[in-house]
Amino acid sequence: MSDVMVFAENNGNKIHPVSYELLGKGKELADKLGGELTAALLSGTSLPAGELIERGADRVYRGTAERLAEPIESSYREVLVQVIEEANPEVILIGATNFGRSLAPRVAMALDTSLTADCTGLDIDEEKNFVQIRPAFSGNILAHIKSRTSPQLATVRYRVFPEAGIEEGKEGEVIDVELSLGGEDTKQVEVLEERRGKKVNLEDAEVVVAAGRGLKKEEDFELIEDLASFFDGKVGASRPLVDDGWIGRAHQVGYSGRRVKPRIYIACGISGQSQHLAGMKDSDMIIAINSDPSAPIFDYADYGLVGDLYEVVPELTRQLKGE
């Protein structure tokens, strides 16, 4: 009862990279607890377990069931509970993706145990307590949480911990679990369609160029796109532009949108309200372009250009292209 289990989220083709980050942190926790690191690899079609082992897992519990090919929480809840009961871990780490944040509470309630959401820090203290650190109050405070039930579940934010490195040829055990997925309740939700077309993975972008209310017309997104395309980056937006339907909601950066952590974030005509900052303030480098020198965004930027975005953005694109 001192093992750490990582839920290896996947969409049937690819393991979500947050799982590799969890393996890195999970190993450290397992060592401190004197236990082993395990992973639960549950999917619609069988996925190779090797990389989970090479990235630190001592044991992989692997199970497939057709219904797991779709993101339906009740199916996953049923089989994850089964695997947890078989492996008996003390700590269970789940990525704080939308899927993880929707699945974990069902598992915690099913097991009548503790769950801490969206952690950004994890440790084991001297008394071997699992300490979970998480932002609350819209990211304004950090709460240190301890649990008094077992097992202890936590969802963990993507891109906070580094990915575990690969140790080629590392050995580990793969346990193929016979899943029983019979519950009627797993059929209560059905996927009718996957709208892949809308997919914009802002979270994975290396460069994000975002526009705010400083943009005057929908067509002017072209300026933003031109700059983004120089970096092969993605276009983001503050909420008002999304509300006006100028750009899809998948592009919204902020507290109620995406949380991004790119190498470079360029904010164009964005004032820097706390709800926007919540989604981008951890970017490696922030460049702000705003005509108002007192705009709060400048306090959170590494470089601030005071000026009209209609002049500055095209000029930046032009000079970058070496024109």
Binding site: E70, P71, S102, R195, K199
Partner: peptide
């Protein structure tokens, strides 16, 4: 969810 939009019933 899963980095995409799903229509569900």
């Amino acid at each position: 969810t899963w980095g995409a939009t799903y229509l569900k019933s």
